[in-house]
Design a protein around this nucleic acid. Sequence first.
DNA 1: ACCTTTGCTTTAATCGTTTAAAGTAATTAT
DNA 2: ATAATTACTTTAAACGATTAAAGCAAAGGT
Lengths: 351, 351
Amino acid sequence: MSYNSILPINIDKLAKVGLKDIAEQAGVSIALVSYVLNGQAVQKQVNHDTAIKIKQVAKELNYQPNQIAKSLKTNKTRTIGLVVADINYRFSTGITRAIEIEAKKNHLTVIYGSSNENRENLAELITTFINHRVEGLIVVPVDNSQEEIRMIQRADIPFILVDRNFPELETNYITLDNYKSAYNATKHLISLGHRKISFINYSTTSFHFKERNRGYMDALKDHQIKFNKNWLQEVSNSNRDEEVPVAMNAILSLDEPCDAVFFATDTLTLNGLKYLIKHNIKVPDQISVLSFDESEAFELFYSSITHSRQPLDEMGKLAVKNLLNLINHKKIEMHVHLEASLVLGDSCYKK
Amino acid sequence: MSYNSILPINIDKLAKVGLKDIAEQAGVSIALVSYVLNGQAVQKQVNHDTAIKIKQVAKELNYQPNQIAKSLKTNKTRTIGLVVADINYRFSTGITRAIEIEAKKNHLTVIYGSSNENRENLAELITTFINHRVEGLIVVPVDNSQEEIRMIQRADIPFILVDRNFPELETNYITLDNYKSAYNATKHLISLGHRKISFINYSTTSFHFKERNRGYMDALKDHQIKFNKNWLQEVSNSNRDEEVPVAMNAILSLDEPCDAVFFATDTLTLNGLKYLIKHNIKVPDQISVLSFDESEAFELFYSSITHSRQPLDEMGKLAVKNLLNLINHKKIEMHVHLEASLVLGDSCYKK
DNA sequence: ACCTTTGCTTTAATCGTTTAAAGTAATTAT
DNA sequence: ATAATTACTTTAAACGATTAAAGCAAAGGT
């Protein structure tokens, strides 16, 4: 039995090729190989023929650099961490896609995690990512996760909050201008002649949802519409199947029923539309409907829904670009407010 | 000006704590610290008080292990790579979520990427992930990506294909039993009395879609229904908005029009339902509708859609579990076929 | 003939861990 | 009193790359 036959058949596959192997094969030192493969051949005055030989051997052996070793030495991992709130959200898939594309453009690898709207999960993901020495983090923070965000600050890792932010925290963030976007949407309904406009939102402590309330309220005020407190309905996220119908009932059984309803999210709109279908209330003839965010679920509704569209691609792209700026130049204070665009459908009528 | 004042204010944050720092602070060697923090204190007979001291100092300094250095030495990254076909698919978010949860349970970090149904993207992601020394890969391969899959095999990294597989390749995979699932769905329609059943599928070379055709055909054959080639309509994915209506037209304008239609994906169903709404064809009174996969878009349709549901949670969970088995025991040949369950709605009528 | 420069290549320290092997002091055995 | 054992602890070599610094011929200058 020859020596070779006791080795695993695919020994060549198991033994990963390293700089050392190339060096041996090419008859040069490891350093030279490193210089050449890192494009420093000219700078380091490597003999042209030697450089060619090295490159050729590297290709022959199908050399793949060990990113781990590289990272340890250079202290650069070319890796960023992304924590979304829940991958099932349209928002999450939208920015995840945009972030991944932009990351690839910049030769960054994305480590991914979902907090599922849970603080402990968020903390665990952040710790794991930091231990993996990500160069930066993009985080969609969950409700009341200020402490977890401070954790990132203490670790002194560049990071950017997306979608949501905490005004009491000094952070860089990219969010929608929720105030302005809600304001504009409400204004649109007012411009169509509506005066009894309901806003159905989640009852939450989140700043970004509160901003939508504020935008709605201010739009009414600025157009001399006296706010009726029954118009603003707040429902709990977990119990929206029951609470949205109650809210709808409330705004439609007022002495002066609302003739327009503005939903703060696509999920709320979906619940609202179900109610309207069930009670055979016609859109837009009997009521105008405006949705914050869209959903593919609207596609089968008989009326195309007018909605605010978040610039997800832009948000994701900006998140990566700005994070890279932070990583490279340690720039601070970066507050980006993007505006939603109003996509006109047939769900709002002119009075 | 004192020496300290020229240092950055947050020098303590910048300097990452390492084993060395703990060793110095505790007055012991680096090795001892490593043993204690890796739970080898008893095995290595470390003095109990010393061990306690070390742990305390580590906590005080908020030590976080450098995963990169650890990986380099141990050759274990506790990282797996996940490549989905397109994060916008419901399938993708479903298994991504399940995979992430199961990965977290096993203290695995997930590196994520989307091929967007493109071979070059897939190849690039695989290369990047391998360079990052992932311990295994979970891949939803794209059409005709056999060569890219062979690349993984050559690198000898454990991997599992999910959702789709290539029968000509010796790989481990977890897929739906597309044949059986389509067979059962078709059988359901037959059992309700339907005899003129259309199947609308994508025209593709993918094995998993072809299997659905085969399941549909065999169900017809096994129930003595003579197949009419006009019943099987294949449309292109990119052009489905135009082609689905054409297909619907075709099956409804036959001498003996179809009275049931089975769509091979949720997106196709959506297009089909739009057609039915537009032409005011009532479901299920005038036609039965069955969908492979569900979509939240169905929620607003007046009839709840009977559909095959893929066990996404189970698929994701199994993918991680089996991948871990591969990583640990190098077990080979693992072919998992899961069955879709039929979720009954109101969209199919009994003849 | 000797020093300098040029052109190219190697040596060796380093990144932060792990871990086999060696070291050391105290205790027990002979 | 000396050897052997026990109970700890440290030393130092890896892992695979990067990179400053040193090394070494050959060519050029005086």
